[in-house]
Amino acid sequence: MNASAAVLLDRARTSAAALPATTLVVRPGSVYQLGLGRMTIEPEAREAAEVMARYCRGDAAAFQRLYALLAARILAYLKGLLGDAAAAEDALQLTFLKVHEARSSYVIGANPIPWIYTIAHRTALDEIRKRKRSRVKLSQGRGKEGEVPAEPIAHITGVAADVGADPAAPAEPGPDAAAAAGALAALAKLPDNQRQALILTKVHGRSIADAAMITGSTPGAIKQRAHRAYVTLRQMLGSKKEVA
């Protein structure tokens, strides 16, 4: 590379770093529409890879940029898995701390987004396991008659199912608030693995291959779970519509 090209590249990098944080664009395209398209060809993947490379070279500003790029969607994913906004925020910090500690494992040029999702997924599973253990201990401590209250049913966003009664809860934006609330209630009833597949592929726009990588599953299983979740969701929302 000659000197002028290097200067131009440096300028481009500097201007990219100076850009304001992008707002997250939700891509609610159908699982079947998204197909197996790989994230690597998308501009956001290229940007994330470039930012991650700078981060690995010790650029602290690159970390801020990476956080701005990914924190919102990782937080939403964690809320979906944990069903608790506060726990999700803690897990988000832990996820980025793990990313920081494991940054030497990154392969320069690779798309870091599925990798960070994978770390978040694992962090959430660890948290869920920890909760289960503490729940078992508590029930053992209480003896036979002691009953631990079930964890509040939470929606995919981490908002409790009875959030409607909470005056502090933010109102659903937009004219479809009722439909969104119905979708939330239906999502909360899905089995964990189906919900994970649906969230990753439909809500977060991950490819089937990425979702399989993130959950440590197979693409076939992800397709099947997402399909089942979608069918169940349609039935549930359809029946609600009829009842209404």
Partner: peptide
Amino acid sequence: DFDDRVLGQATGVDAPPPAPSADLLRA
């Protein structure tokens, strides 16, 4: 039976994240 977009709206993916924690920033 429902519009796909409702899932994106329902899940609140565009909620702003908290700032990085002090521990994280220190690291």
